[in-house]
Design a protein around this nucleic acid. Structure first.
Lengths: 194, 194, 194, 194
DNA sequence: AATGAATGAGAATTCATTCAT
DNA sequence: AATGAATGAATTCTCATTCAT
C-alpha cells in the first residue's frame, strides 16, 4: 500500500469514528482532522469534499463484509443454506458494527448522492452476489422459478434493512440476531398455513 | 374546526409542499411562511420549532391513509385478501404522494427524533392495525400459527418500505405498484419451491 | 385607589418579580402578563413600553424606602446620628430587597433612559433629603463648612452604591450591613491618622 | 508580537470603538468586522463569542492604565500623595477615554459575567495595588490603623466610580477632574468639623 | 377596557472549503 | 504534500408591539 493510500485510510478511519458517533450534519471536518492528526486542509488533498469523504467510508467496510461473508459461505453448498447464512451474517455484521450501521442505514442508504457515489458500486457487488445465490437456488430447483429474482431479493433485503433500521432506532437495546431463524422460515415458506 | 386549527392546517399544508420538494435541511421557514401567506414569526406561534413543524406533517397524512385504507378494506373478509389489499394500498398511496413519501421514508423514518414525536403515535396506530389483521389470519387458520405476529409484520413492512425507498432513490422512474402481486405471492408462499 | 391604579400596581408587582429574578433583557412581557393574570396587550394600556414598565417599578419601592427612612429618623436630632442612620438604613433596605437591588443597581442606575424617567424624580427626592441633612449638619456646626454639600453627598452615596453593587456581584454571599460603623467612622473622620 | 496577536489586537481595537459608541446589545459583530477589515467569521477564530470579545477589551486598557499610573507615581513617596495622585489619575484617565469609560462603568462593571472573565484579573491587579498603598500609609503612620484596609479602599473606589458614572450619565457635560482636591480632602479628613 | 393573534425586524454563529505560504 | 488562517453565506428564532375584535 502506497504512502498516499495509507494516509487516505488513516483519514477514513478517523472519519468513520467521528461520523459514527454523531451524524453527517453534526460531525465536523475539524474534529476528523484532529483525530487523524492532520491539518483540516489536508483532508481536501484526499477527498473532494465532506460528502465524498463520508461516502468513502463504506468501501473498506463493504469489502470486509464481502470477504468475511464468502468465508462463512465455505462448505455450504445448498442455496437455502446460503440464504440462511446470508441472513445470519447480515444481522451479525451490523450487530458487530453499530456505529457504521447507523451511518449506512440511517444516512447513506437514504441519500440520493450515495447511490451515485463510487463506493455504492461495492455494495452493488454484494447485491449481485445475492442475486447469484437466488439464481443458483432456482436452477437447482430449491427455489420457485415462477418468481423473478429481483422480487426475491427485494423480500430478503427489505426484511433485513427493516430489522437493522428498527434496531438502531430502538437504540440497539435488544439482540439484533436473535430470532433470525423465524425470518428464514418466513422467507422460505411464507405466512400461509399449509 | 376552530380558526386556530385551520391556521395550523394551513401552515402544515405549506410545510408539506416545501419540505417535500426539498428536504428538512434545505427547506426554509421563510419559504414555508411565504407559501402559507403568513409572517415567519407566526409559524412559531403554532410550532415549537422547525423540527416540530416537520414532524407534524405526517399526522394528517397518516389519518388520511388510515381512513382510506379502512374504506378499501370494506367487503373484504378473508385475512389474505386484507393483506393483499394492504400491500396494494400502501404502494398506491405513496405512488400518489411522492413528495410526502420522500419526507417520510428518506428523512423521518430514519430519524431518532421522529419516533419520539407525537405524530409517530398515529403511525403506530396503523402498525397495530396490521398486527390485528395478522392475528385474525392466524385465528381463522389462514396464516401459520408457528410464527410470531411481529415477525410477520416485519416481513410485510420490510418489503414495502424497501420497495418505496428504492423507488424514491431511483427517482420514481418506474411504476411503484406494478408487480405487487408477486410480492403478495412471495409473502404468502415463500421462496421455496414446493 | 381607583380600579385603574389598582391594576397598574398589580402589573408593576408582577414586573418587579419577573425583572428581579432575571434582567431587563431576558424578562419577557409575556411572563409578566401571565403572572399578573392579564393578556399581553393589556400591559400596553397601562405602560408605554417595556422600558416604561421597568422604570415604573422603583416608584413604589422608593416611596416605601423614604417613608420608612423618615420613621427611622424620628427622635434623632443630631445630623451625625442621621447620617449614621442613613448609612445603616440604606444597607439594611437593599439587604431586605435583593431582587429590587439587582434591578436598580445593576440595570436602572446605569441606564441613560432612567435618569430621564418620571420615577427618577422620586429618587431625587431622596437625594435632596440627604442634602438637607448635610446642610443641617453644616449649620449646626457638626460638619465642615469648607466642603461643598454635593461633594459630601458624593462621598456618601458613592460608598453606599459601591458596597451594594459589590455585594450583588459577589452573589449576596455575605452580610451587607455588617461593618457599617467602620464606614460611618471613615466618612466622619477620614483616613488620615490624627 | 506574533501575527496572531497582532490580528487579535486589531479586532479588539475595532471592538472598543464600536462598543464604546453604542453598547453591548446594539453593537453588531458585522460592524466590528467591517471596521477591522476582516470577515465576520474571523472574529470567531479569535474570540469565543460576542461577550468574550467584549470582555477582552479592558485587558489592554487596564494595562495601559496601570503602566501610566506607575509612571505618575514616580517620585512620590508619601502615601497621602500617592492616594491624591490615584484620585487625580483615575479621573483623568476616564476623562481621556470616555467611550471606554462608558463600556466599563455602565456595562461591564455591572455584569456578573465580567467578574468571572479573564480580564477581570487585570483589574484586580490594580485594586491590589491600591490596597498596597493603603497598607503602606498605615505602616508609615500616615493613615489610621484602626480601620481595615478594605473599608478604606471601598471608600476610595466608591467615590471614584460614583463620580465617573454620574459624569457619564450626565453626558460628560462637565469636567470630570475638576474639584478632585475636595474629594481628597474629604477622604483624608472626613466630614466632621474639628 | 381587554384581548391575544399576528407581526417582522434583526443578528449571532457555524463550518466546509480555499489558497497563499 | 501539508498547513491552518481566513472566508462569508445562510437561516432560525425571539419577543416587543400593534390592532382588529
Amino acid at each position: 500500500m502506497s504512502k498516499k493510500d495509507l494516509r487516505r485510510q488513516q483519514i477514513i478511519q478517523a472519519a468513520a469514528e467521528v461520523f459514527g458517533n454523531s451524524n453527517f450534519q453534526n460531525a465536523s471536518i475539524s474534529e476528523i482532522a484532529q483525530r487523524a492528526n492532520i491539518a483540516e486542509g489536508t483532508v481536501y488533498q484526499y477527498f473532494k469534499n465532506k460528502e465524498d469523504l463520508f461516502f468513502s467510508i463504506p468501501a473498506q467496510k463493504t469489502e470486509e463484509f464481502c470477504e468475511e461473508f464468502n468465508l462463512h459461505l465455505q462448505g455450504i453448498h445448498d442455496p437455502a443454506g446460503k440464504i440462511r447464512k446470508l441472513i445470519w451474517y447480515y444481522l451479525y455484521f451490523f450487530k458487530s458494527n453499530p456505529a457504521y450501521a447507523r451511518s449506512l442505514m440511517l444516512e447513506m442508504r437514504v441519500s440520493k448522492g450515495f447511490i451515485k457515489s463510487e463506493t455504492y458500486g461495492m455494495i452493488r457487488a454484494f447485491t449481485e452476489r445475492v442475486l447469484e445465490i437466488i439464481k443458483e437456488g432456482q436452477e437447482s430447483g430449491s427455489f420457485r422459478k415462477d418468481i423473478g429474482i429481483y422480487a426475491i431479493r427485494e423480500l430478503l433485503l427489505g426484511v433485513l434493512e427493516h430489522r437493522v433500521t428498527r434496531w438502531l432506532l430502538k437504540e440497539e437495546k435488544y439482540d439484533l440476531v436473535e430470532g433470525y431463524d423465524e425470518i428464514c422460515d418466513l422467507i422460505f415458506n411464507g405466512i400461509k398455513s399449509s
